[in-house]
């Protein structure tokens, strides 16, 4: 009988969604960069819309993580995922807040807001062993 994880249907669906999102992200980002590098780059509303496009596959990853929690049938594993996400969120917000003040007082260079998402993904990696320590 199959239960999750390892590697369970919920994990398999998550891995598939993550792969699809990242593939779309790479394709969309390259396309948008090329459009903005043209001699006559897009302007106005079109430019605004195009500039938001690379964000959507990243939002897709957030959705995939939400689905992972919903679709994980093992309640203890679900708790561990939630703990992992809370650890990642706490670390990310703490680092972003410290960075914001450092930037405000001219001690570090400016960082675009989307780095918060990248940092959060990295912190999920940190949160995984911490949440499962002695689990």
């Amino acid at each position: 009988m199959q239960c999750d994880p390892p590697p369970g249907p919920a994990i398999r669906a998550y891995t598939r969604r993550l792969f699809i999102s990242m593939t779309i992200y790479a394709a969309v980002l390259i396309a948008v960069i090329k459009l903005f590098q043209q001699p006559h780059p897009p302007t106005g509303l079109v430019a605004i819309l195009l500039a938001t496009f690379p964000a959507f596959p990243i939002i897709g990853v957030f959705w995939a993580i939400a689905r992972l929690i919903v679709e994980t049938t093992d309640e203890y594993q679900r708790l561990l995922f939630v703990k992992q996400i809370l650890i990642a969120t706490a670390l990310t917000l703490s680092i972003a807040t410290v960075w914001g003040f450092l930037e405000n007082f001219g001690q570090v260079p400016h960082a675009e807001a989307f780095y918060v998402s990248i940092l959060w993904f990295a912190m999920l990696g940190v949160g995984a062993p911490v949440a499962r320590w002695r689990a």
């Binding site: 239960c3 309640e75 203890y76 594993q77 689990a135």
Partner: peptide
């Protein structure tokens, strides 16, 4: 239909089902 890790956590009292 749960993971072995879950059974272990319940048995050792680290998790109440």
């Amino acid at each position: 239909q749960v993971s072995r890790q879950s059974v272990n956590a319940i048995e050792t009292g680290r998790y109440d089902p």
